[in-house]
């Protein structure tokens, strides 16, 4: 065989190998971090895949599409804005998780009666072992609250307690009542009883004390927090609890038929004033209650749950 012939044979074989290997290599390289996620209503299976595994610090590229109706996609406890997931369209999103751990992702658009069951998990693994995170348990567990026990408040209000009006008596109020610890662990009805029994406030009438209770609530919230709470309520709670908190949202009839209980009516003073922020936060975090109340713990940040709790009292206070 001539040397030139050998060379040309090697050249041709190398060329063929390159052509064959190129698509395989491209797939192996290109597919890294690209995950196609299909959304279907919870009754037909929810998200596919329902568990996404990713390395910490590595960007993942998600191609989201819907197999039936309009869905949304968001990561729990994160600032990443929600995106819509539409049938026949691909929504692309790139995410990077810095911290190892388990994250929830969920549907943000009402896609069916079991919309809130449409959730998935993102497992982020890291090089270094996950350090046992020092997390404080939620306040309702620290206080040993039974969040399923009824908590009626036997209160009679002459008018809506007004925080602005209560501010004028704030000079009389001992500072211990204004701390977040006190506010979060006491229901407004308990605060009222505590203030009523306080010798510093004997000169005040009952309605003035209620104004002070509202003042304690308002000093533990911020306007931005209340606005965020209102946004969260409209987006996640109003469908059952009603846009005005009356427990008469568009799904309340379904829930009553299934569970025999109506969604909590926040415009009822006996319900809202008898619940401490810790109790309300516990209910939001855990859900359940035998009523199909979703558990929001994996989706809301700690601050978001407190914002939402603060907003719930606007149905009683102004």
């Amino acid at each position: 065989m001539k040397r030139t012939e050998l060379l040309s044979r090697i050249l041709v074989i190398t060329g063929i190998l390159i052509v064959l290997a190129a698509p395989i290599a491209a797939r192996a390289i290109g597919a890294q971090g690209v995950i196609e996620v299909h959304g279907r209503i919870a009754e037909s299976g929810g998200w596919t895949p329902s568990t996404i595994r990713v390395q910490a610090g590595m960007p993942i590229h998600l191609r989201l599409t819907s197999d039936d109706v309009m869905h949304g996609f968001a990561i729990g406890q994160s600032d990443t804005p929600a995106v819509d997931v539409l049938p026949g369209q691909v929504t692309e999103i790139t995410l990077t998780f810095d911290k190892p751990g388990t994250y929830a992702y969920y549907c943000t658009r009402w896609c069916g009666p079991n919309h809130w069951r449409m959730r998935g998990i993102i497992e982020v693994t890291g090089e270094e072992p996950v350090s046992p995170q020092v997390t404080t348990p939620p306040l309702y567990l620290m206080l040993n609250l039974d969040i399923d026990a009824p908590h009626p408040a036997s209160v009679t209000l002459d008018r809506i307690p007004d925080a602005q009006y209560g501010e004028q008596f704030s000079a009389l109020l001992p500072a211990a009542y204004l701390t977040p610890d006190y506010y979060r662990s006491h229901s407004p009805a308990q605060i009222y009883l505590d203030l009523r029994a306080d010798p510093a406030l004997v000169s005040l009438a009952g309605s003035d004390i209620w104004d002070l209770v509202a003042y304690i609530w308002l000093s533990n919230t911020t306007p931005e927090g209340l606005a965020e709470g209102q946004r969260l309520f409209a987006q996640n709670c109003a469908a059952c609890h009603g846009e005005t908190g009356g427990g008469n949202g568009v799904f309340s009839a379904n829930i009553t038929a299934l569970a025999g209980k109506t969604p909590a009516n926040f415009s009822d003073p006996a319900i809202t004033l008898g619940a401490s922020p810790a109790l309300l936060q516990g209910k939001i975090l855990r859900g359940g209650m035998g009523t199909g109340m979703p558990s929001w713990g994996p989706l809301f940040t700690d601050q978001q749950t407190w914002d939402l709790v603060g907003f719930l009292y606007t149905f009683q206070f102004k």
Binding site: R109, W110, A234, Q235, C237, A238, A239, C240, G242, E243, G249, V250, F251
Partner: peptide
């Protein structure tokens, strides 16, 4: 056009 989610008139 408008879009309405349940609970958000």
């Amino acid at each position: 056009s408008v879009t309405a989610d349940p609970g958000q008139t």
